[in-house]
Design a protein around this nucleic acid. Structure first.
Lengths: 125, 125
DNA sequence: TTTATTATTGCAACATTGTTGCAATAAGAG
DNA sequence: CTCTTATTGCAACAATGTTGCAATAATAAA
């Protein structure tokens, strides 16, 4: 299945690039001012994930956020870092700090999802 | 507003005690075999939280889980530990290990929500 | 350039999780 | 036993995400 280039995809890709942080579907819909259907936004974002262009993270509020892959290897998204969500400006970002956990004996980890919510440098100033 | 003792509340409280782990509304509904309404279960659980009897954690799947408070002080729920969710038996538990994060300069943390999903000792055996 | 193929879109509909309004029920005080 | 009102059940709604299907539009082919 070959991909085609469409205005919606371009717009969303540019938003993700410009944001330099993770965005949720509703943030994108707002910025697009209803020009693009909810469903289309989800489908574009999911397509980006399938193509290894972006990755999806489940926030501590239970919503999905999408961000362009940077340090992720092909086919192997790295999420072993903390995520930060600002309670004031809503910005979501990946922190440098890696998550370190030691599990009880016999346990094995498949995935890690760590969130810190609070106030970013801009908002706590 | 004085609380009253009802069968639904007793049943749910006993389930939480017996489980010795965190349960979600749908797990409770299943065990109660539809004898109690969905809404009632949510209201009972929220009441437990208000009364400081239980606390609520948002899982990495975006659902709420409820667990009886053990080490939590009155009015001050401690969640600064990792949570584990078994992908096989669905069990959710609080790990001993505390979360340690250092945020970028100027950032302040209000809340921490850390999850590891994988296979527990029983299920990975 | 025109036509044909089919990826993409928009709309309606649905699923899941959680909440709220309101009338009916029932716990517990008097 | 009666009264007050906390609690319940049902219907309805809200937010988030997915699926089916016909219409649209990118791109390849003629």
């Amino acid at each position: 299945m070959k991909r085609r280039s469409t205005p919606a995809q371009q717009a969303i890709l540019n938003m993700l690039k410009a944001a330099d942080s993770a965005l949720s579907q509703d943030m994108i819909e707002q910025q697009l001012k209803g020009e693009t259907d909810r469903v289309t936004i989800y489908r574009v974002l999911n397509r980006f994930c399938e193509d290894g262009l972006a990755h999806r993270i489940t926030s501590d509020e239970g919503k999905f956020y999408f961000a362009l892959c940077k340090n992720c290897q092909q086919q192997h998204h790295t999420h072993d870092h903390f995520h930060f969500r600002c309670l004031s400006c809503q910005k979501v970002e990946c922190l440098e700090e890696k998550v370190k956990v030691s599990l009880p004996l016999g346990y094995s980890a498949a995935n890690v999802n760590c969130w810190v919510s609070g106030y970013c440098a801009n908002c706590s100033a």
